[in-house]
């Protein structure tokens, strides 16, 4: 692939809910087989950005290109075709609780690619094994799983269809540090094995450092800094400095109402 056509290119993305402007002219490129992590505080529109790319939300203005193809405004068959390129790990895994674990993992294969069920089950069990879950887990129901296991099943489901692009929405949120690191390792491993492009959003710096080739910071609806992971500590950007060190004092003012 040429470097001139990034896998995902966002330009001037704007999205507002009522009066609340969430994205305000966001520009970001994600290169082929690159892992980009977008950091930013809670409620800065990180999830909204991912949902705009997937066509789950419709931006008011701006352009999103996937492999050079404009995806804003696509619908029906075209949108489904583009969505087949994506896999996504949701923040709370978003497993379907009406079906056992293996069917969750096999869902994209059976529904999206019309793979026969027993064949899909074998692939699903292999994917579960790849994220460190045994055969017996496949027969469990999502409600029976712990948080870390849910995340791993979600990861297995995201990679089951061998997507070209994988989104990770807060992959380590709600996990203990060790399980968080296990998930980080799995993400790095899976993305590398698939050769996929990864776009993650997180506010966990340890996770960002581990899985990112490049880090971008989202603040007030714009990307205010982007650069290689190694340079995040000497960004010279006061906002980034404050965020990665987790200081309450600094240019980013949290809207905390005095009691």
């Amino acid at each position: 692939m040429t470097e001139t056509v990034p896998k995902i290119r966002m330009r001037g993305l704007c999205k507002a809910f009522g009066d609340k402007v969430v994205l305000d002219g966001l520009d970001l490129d994600v290169g082929q087989s690159e892992s980009v992590v977008v950091i930013g505080g809670s409620g800065t529109g990180k999830s909204v950005m991912l949902k705009c790319i997937l066509g789950l939300l419709h931006p008011e203005a701006g352009s999103i290109q996937v492999d050079g193809e404009e995806v804003v405004g696509l619908h029906g068959q075209d949108l489904e075709r583009v969505r087949r390129k994506f896999g996504m790990l949701f923040q709370n895994a978003a497993l379907f609780d009406s079906m056992p674990v293996w069917e969750n993992v096999a869902f994209g294969l059976v529904q999206g690619q019309a793979v026969p069920r027993n064949e899909a089950k074998e692939i699903a069990l292999a994917k579960l094994a790849a994220v460190g879950l045994g055969m017996n887990v496949g027969e469990l129901w999502p409600a029976e799983l712990s948080g870390g296991m849910r995340k791993r099943v979600g990861l297995a489901r995201a990679i089951a269809t061998t997507p070209e692009i994988i989104f990770f929405d807060e992959p380590t949120t709600g996990l203990d540090p060790i399980m968080g690191d296990v998930i980080n390792d799995l993400i790095v491993k899976c993305v590398r094995e698939l050769g996929a492009t990864a776009l993650s959003i997180t506010h966990d710096m340890a996770s960002a450092r581990k899985i990112a080739d490049r880090i971008a910071m989202l603040y007030e609806g714009k990307i205010i800094w982007a650069g290689p992971t190694a340079e995040v500590d000497r960004s010279g950007n006061p906002y980034v400095e404050q965020f990665i060190h987790g200081n309450a004092e600094g240019p980013i003012e949290m809207e905390v109402r005095a009691l």
Binding site: F86, G87, F96, S98, G112
Partner: peptide, 25 residues
């Protein structure tokens, strides 16, 4: 209750990302 729970736990979004139309499904 069932579809509402699927909505608030992002399961409907997950259906979309797995190239399955929630209206159909």
């Amino acid at each position: 209750a069932e579809i509402g729970t699927m909505r608030v736990t992002e399961q409907i979004d997950a259906l979309d990302t797995l190239a399955t139309n929630p209206f159909k499904y």
